[in-house]
Design a protein around this nucleic acid. Structure first.
Length: 466
RNA sequence: GGCCCCAUCGUCUAGUGGCCGAGGACACCACCCUCUCAAGGUGGCGACACGGGUUCGAAUCCCGUUGGGGCUGCCA
């Protein structure tokens, strides 16, 4: 008994950086192949010379590696397989399954009668050059067996004679796709639903080429925007690389992507990749479109950030702290950041948020949120007394977190305020904001001198404005 | 226009004829915890598009309607 090994592939057209839809398709193919113990192939569909650029192809591979999606074979490049497509095209022509057509775009338009497209005018003109068209059968039907949608039937009367080879002799994707999937012995074709309508054409080509064992198909639901349209490069934020730059972790991105159309058992959502591989079944993928919800991505990213060992969090944050920081680069102090890292880690939903949570530590003067200043100092009747009190108390107390907490609580007491209220003006004076890491830890790492200086400056500003 | 796909809370989903007066998560609201914020805890809001069937019984099966989407290129 022969056991056929599963072979799946991700075959993107390098139209730019890898987008979230492509990444999800790659991920599902990868999960499927790994679950089945099969082979995962990467194939670049660059039959259009405009797309056959190394930098675009490198970008796709870089992003896949970042996501942890590795491949066993490839990348194969369709731009380098012209010979195979040419010989297939020749065979199709010789067997009467394809013919040359010299109709211009306008001619085709004029010859499109009714609802079934181009009427096949050139079928019997005996041309010896032009674009090569596949002679689609006029009767019968082709059934696509889809693992997610069941059988999908296409009436041949609705399939026009379509171009498989351009006038310049290069193959269009339908031909390349059919030939490659046959040559590369793909057993499963998992791709976006937008390709479902072209599947019967590929099947027809394969049949004409003598194929007797078509692959099993699975057309994944599209990922859509808030208007429920297919994600578009123009309107939507689709580049995975961009999410990376916005501070998302690859594990979080991958986890979120997996949740679009598929779901792990037992109401779990944060799932280690090994468990996904163990559980993933292509038949369980839902057929309906899914909205790409950045809010949820952020929530998941936050969970992954919090789960990181502190040292890893520090290391992962470095690029955001060292590249275009909001402070003079020479003022950054890794030891200081490490001291507050545990508190920052719990508050950041993306790594890109990290700098704004610690900027007051590396800036000569904090960036003041005017609304916060106004609320906690400008219009606060007790602000002056609290700033004075803090100045006095911090001047010679022990400089550690517990002591700062204690003397500030006492100060609040003396002013008849809850600590929560009393710390507000101090926080704004020191950090410039009303939110951030715990105050006493912040003061502790900031140091006595800078704390006192900032309190004095806040006092000066307050008195000069009143 | 034609062909095709899809249809459970705002969003992602669980649900495959009775366990569903529909469960979880994100978002939102309230409360608790608390030095702010976050995290965490508790509770709340909130959905089976509609109409026919089939069945003792339907979110689950069938048909239709409506709505949304994809494709319709010598792009992929």
């Amino acid at each position: 008994m022969t056991r056929v090994t599963v072979r799946a592939r991700f075959s993107p057209a390098p139209t730019g950086f890898l987008h979230v839809g492509g990444a999800r398709t790659a991920l599902f193919n990868w999960l499927f192949a790994r679950h089945e113990g099969g082979t995962f192939v990467l194939r670049i569909e660059d039959t259009d010379p405009a797309l056959s650029r190394d930098e675009l192809i490198d970008g796709i591979q870089r992003t896949m590696r970042w996501l942890g999606i590795d491949w066993d074979e490839g990348p194969h490049r369709q731009s380098q397989r012209g010979e195979a497509y040419r010989s297939a095209a020749t065979r199709l022509r010789e067997t009467g399954n394809a013919y040359y057509c010299d109709c211009s775009r306008d001619d085709v338009q004029a010859r499109t009668k009714g609802d079934s497209g181009y009427d096949g005018w050139c079928r019997d003109r005996g041309l010896t050059s032009g674009a090569l068209r596949f002679r689609a059968p006029d009767e019968g039907e082709t059934v696509v067996h889809d693992l997610i949608r069941g059988d999908v039937t296409f009436d041949h009367a609705t399939i026009e004679d379509f171009v498989i080879e351009r006038t310049d002799g290069t193959a269009v994707f339908l031909l390349a796709n059919a030939v490659d999937d046959m040559d590369m012995a793909m057993t499963h074709v998992i791709r976006g639903e937008d390709l479902l309508a072209s599947t019967p054409k590929v099947l027809l080509i394969r049949g004409a080429l003598g194929d007797t064992q078509p692959p099993l198909y699975a057309h994944l639901p599209l990922i859509v925007n808030e208007k429920r349209q297919k994600l578009s490069k123009r309107r939507d934020d689709v580049a995975v690389e961009e999410y990376r730059e916005r501070g998302f972790l690859p594990e979080a991105m991958r986890n979120y992507l997996a949740l679009l159309g598929w779901s792990p058992a037992d109401d779990r959502e944060i799932v280690p990749i090994e468990e996904m591989v163990a559980e993933f079944r292509i038949e369980d993928v839902k057929p309906s479109p899914a909205f790409f919800d950045v809010k949820k991505l952020e929530a998941i990213n936050g969970e992954y950030i919090r789960a990181l060992p502190v040292a890893t969090f520090v290391r992962e944050s470095l690029p955001w702290l060292e590249t275009d920081p909001p402070w003079p680069p020479e003022c950054f102090d890794l030891a200081v950041f490490e001291a507050v890292a545990p508190f920052v880690q719990e508050r950041a939903r993306t790594l890109a948020e990290v700098p704004s949570l610690v900027d007051f530590l590396f800036l000569e003067e904090p960036v003041v949120d005017e609304a916060a200043w106004d609320k906690s100092i400008g219009r606060s009747p007790s602000a002056e007394a609290l700033l004075d009190g803090a100045l006095a108390a911090y001047r010679d107390c022990h400089w550690d977190t517990e002591e700062l907490h204690r003397v500030t609580a006492a100060l609040a007491d003396r002013n008849g305020l809850k600590l929560a209220k009393a710390q507000a003006p101090i926080r704004v004076a020191i950090t410039g904001r009303s939110v951030g890491p715990p105050l006493f830890e912040s003061l502790h790492v900031l140091g006595r001198e800078r704390t006192l200086t900032r309190l004095r400056r806040a006092k000066d500003r307050l008195s000069s404005s009143s």
